[in-house]
């Protein structure tokens, strides 16, 4: 299981990386290599050139910009997992990080790599969609921004142009004092890709009523879903499990769930409701704990 031969380049900056991409149709970017590596080993991916962006200065960072926490594309997942800023201001991202692969893959894998790979079961992808992150790429010396919900087009398919390189992801920070998060996923083994996952972030007022909610479902469909109708309906509401279940059921009634060796489409569709209810319940509870 050896990869096909390729050339290796290590550009000095992101624009050089883009130029290398533009010059070679078969070139691909590598940062952590935790997804690309297995694909290359099985020769399911055979890039003619790997453009290693992991050492490009200024691409690995977690930065507080007030309304947003900005995460550089090559920031290692274990850095984000342990980052105090992420814990304080992006509780949903902090919550899902331990579920991303294993300790050893998080040590190499990057946040940008996970986003660009576009796996609908990836936890970071789900958080980006749920929170409405903005993704920023460089292409031909220009920067472009796109909403996460527009970025993911299908399983492992994104809007990223072939000549572009992701630079950063901008996650919105909720300023409300009482913000809670919930995350649930179901899989065969604890660290496998989820059959279905659900993420919820909820802000409560002093009375325990929801003032804002963001809810997302991962792994069930070709791209993660945002359940905005559910989020809107929760506004002004205290947690009521039966009602939340009805809302989730209605929101997920028409989805086209995926099927594979491990789980049927019916399973994904049915359990998506369960996962959503549990994530929302956890988020309410988490928020209620805050003063």
């Amino acid at each position: 299981m050896k990869p096909a031969a390729f050339e290796y380049s290590r550009p000095a900056d992101i624009d050089e990386a883009c130029a290398l991409l533009a010059a070679d149709d078969g070139a691909r970017v590598i940062a952590g290599g935790q997804t690309l590596g297995p694909l290359m080993a099985m020769r399911l991916a055979r890039p003619s050139r790997l453009i290693d962006i992991a050492r490009i200065p200024g691409l690995a960072f977690v930065r507080d910009e007030g309304k947003e926490i900005v995460v550089g594309a090559t920031t290692r997942q274990h850095v984000v997992e342990n980052d105090p800023l992420v814990r304080a201001k992006l509780p949903l991202l902090a919550k899902v990080m331990p579920f991303v692969g294993h300790t050893a893959t998080r040590a190499r894998g990057t946040v940008g790599g996970s986003l660009v790979n576009g796996d609908p079961a990836a936890e970071i992808v789900l958080v980006a969609v749920t929170l409405g992150a903005i993704l920023v790429w460089r292409d031909g010396g220009e920067s472009q921004s796109i909403a996460a919900s527009d970025f993911f087009l299908g399983p492992m398919v994104t809007a990223l142009p072939l000549t572009a390189c992701l630079a950063e992801a901008r996650f919105p920070v909720w300023p409300e004092p009482r913000v809670g998060v919930g995350f649930h996923e179901i899989n065969a083994r604890q660290s496998d890709f989820a059959f279905v996952s659900a993420a919820a972030q909820i802000a409560l007022d002093a009375d325990g009523c929801c003032t804002r909610a963001a809810i997302g479902i991962g792994a069930a469909t070709a791209v993660p879903l945002r359940l905005d109708a559910v989020a809107d309906a929760l506004k002004g509401q205290r947690f009521d499990e039966a009602r939340v279940r009805e809302l989730a059921k209605a929101a997920l009634a028409g989805i086209e769930a995926m099927a594979d060796l491990h789980a049927s489409a019916e399973y994904r569709k049915r359990v998506a409701v369960t996962m959503a209810v549990r994530a929302i319940a956890d988020a309410y509870q988490d928020a209620a704990r805050r003063p």
Binding site: Y8, Q34, T103, A107
Partner: peptide, 13 residues
């Protein structure tokens, strides 16, 4: 100091 998978890293990296 961190555990990583050496099969998923190229020597050139």
């Amino acid at each position: 100091g961190a555990a990583v998978r050496s099969c998923l890293m190229f020597a050139v990296q």
